Computed example of a mutant assay.
Amino acid sequence: MTDSSNLDALKRCYELWGETKGGSAEAWLGLMDDQIDFRSLAMAQSPEVGFTAPRTCKEELGCYLNELLADWEMEYYRVDDYIVDGDRICTVGSTAWTNKRTGKRAESPKLDYVTFKNGKILAFHEFYDTASMIAAAS
């Protein structure tokens, strides 16, 4: 895939993610390599966000998405900017989620660092306000 193909595929996934409020997990899984380095800033340091543990394969990433959507309801997800450098894409945006158990809201700037290889996502690292998320889950 060319740089623009990677960017187009990633944009489609983010657009679906926001439009469906998380109902497009299969689109993400379809874009992932079978082996992936997926890391979330929280990295399961708190039991309230155990789903954020590092993931190393598509099956584990499916568990991450299922656990996220079981505990949280998306209010919005917006990407404002895409920064492309070869097979690497950085997204800058914001998101808000409500914890289904507590009813508390977490809103945060969001940055994702995505690495492609042969048209598939090989690495995905996400950065956001973990304190806000843990507080909403507590």
Rank of each mutant, 00 (worst) to 15 (best):
A70K: 09
A131S: 11
E19M: 07
G62W: 00
K104R: 15
Y128M: 00
R55W: 03
W28E: 00
A123E: 09
A25L: 07
T98G: 07
L122E: 11
I134Y: 07
E59S: 10
G50T: 07
C90E: 12
L10H: 13
F38Y: 14
G30S: 14
Y82D: 01
K120I: 08
N6D: 15
A25F: 09
S40C: 12
A135P: 01
Y82T: 01
S5E: 15
C57V: 00
N118I: 10
R105S: 10
W28K: 01
T98C: 11
S24T: 02
Y64D: 04
E126H: 07
R39A: 13
N66F: 13
E19N: 13
T20C: 09
D85C: 11
D34V: 04
M74A: 13
R12L: 13
R39S: 11
Q45P: 09
L10Q: 06
E19D: 14
V49I: 07
D37R: 05
I121A: 09
E107Q: 13
C13K: 03
Y77S: 06
V92Y: 10
G93H: 12
G50R: 03
A135F: 08
S4M: 09
E126I: 02
Q35F: 09
A27M: 02
E48A: 10
A123C: 05
V92P: 06
G93P: 11
G22S: 10
T20G: 10
S46Y: 12
K11S: 14
D80N: 15
W28F: 03
E60I: 02
A106P: 08
L69N: 15
E75V: 09
W17G: 05
P109C: 07
E48R: 02
W28M: 03
C13V: 15
R55H: 05
K11V: 06
M1V: 14
G18Q: 01
L29C: 12
L61G: 06
I134L: 05
W28V: 01
C57L: 00
T91M: 08
R101D: 15
R55L: 01
E107K: 04
E15H: 04
E67K: 01
G50Q: 03
G93T: 05
A106G: 13
Y64M: 03
W17M: 01
D112G: 11
E26I: 09
V49W: 06
E75K: 04
T115K: 06
I83T: 00
T20K: 04
T52L: 05
G93F: 02
L65W: 11
L61F: 12
D37K: 02
A123D: 05
Q35M: 12
L41H: 06
W17Y: 15
C63M: 12
L31N: 09
P47V: 12
C57T: 04
V92T: 08
R12N: 14
R55P: 01
D33W: 01
L29P: 02
T98P: 04
E19A: 14
A9T: 06
S138Y: 09
Y14G: 05
S94D: 14
K110M: 15
L68Y: 14
D81R: 08
A137Y: 08
A44N: 08
G18I: 00
R78E: 15
L111I: 11
